[in-house]
């Protein structure tokens, strides 16, 4: 079972990193969202996996899962939302100020030119 969870974390990380490295703001925000899922689950697994042992104290339960990573992850989820919101609004602001949604604020034309000049330099 652990392997499956680890695989899920790994794939979410890989997709997240790939999207974070894209040139447009929206995929980057999506990538960061995926990455924060991966990080949250990763942190959560630091308490190891337990089934049916939620940390709700009751007299007839003896074993509980580790509540500490859960408490940390709970706030991390909310903070990640704050960060996502801030980023997406930042990208809206960038679109409004710069007229495009490239992460470096390049317009389509400027980007084409940059690619061309790089190709020329390569030749």
């Amino acid at each position: 079972m652990e392997w499956i969870v680890a695989l899920v974390i790994g794939v979410m990380t890989a997709s997240g990193v790939y999207l974070v490295l894209r040139a447009r703001t929206f995929p980057v925000v999506l990538g960061l969202t995926l990455l924060s899922y991966a990080v949250n689950v990763f942190l959560f697994t630091m308490g190891r996996l337990q089934v049916g042992q939620a940390a709700i104290i009751s007299p007839d339960t003896t074993a509980y899962t580790d509540p500490l990573p859960q408490a940390l992850v709970l706030t991390a989820i909310v903070i990640a939302f704050g960060m996502t919101a801030f980023l997406i609004v930042l990208s809206l602001k960038a679109r409004s100020e710069l007229g495009n949604d490239h992460v470096d604020g390049l317009s389509y034309v400027a980007e084409e030119q940059a690619v061309k000049s790089r190709q020329k330099a390569g030749n």
Binding site: A6, I9, G10, A14, Y18, F42, T45, G47, L68
Partner: peptide
């Protein structure tokens, strides 16, 4: 693609390295 694949593999192995070990929680 190379970077993201290696990031994924590294994180997966890291998670696995932790989950396959016993520990003494402070909880």
């Amino acid at each position: 693609i190379a970077l993201s694949l290696s990031a994924g593999v590294i994180v997966m192995l890291m998670a696995m390295a932790v989950m396959s070990r016993d520990y003494a929680p402070i909880s």
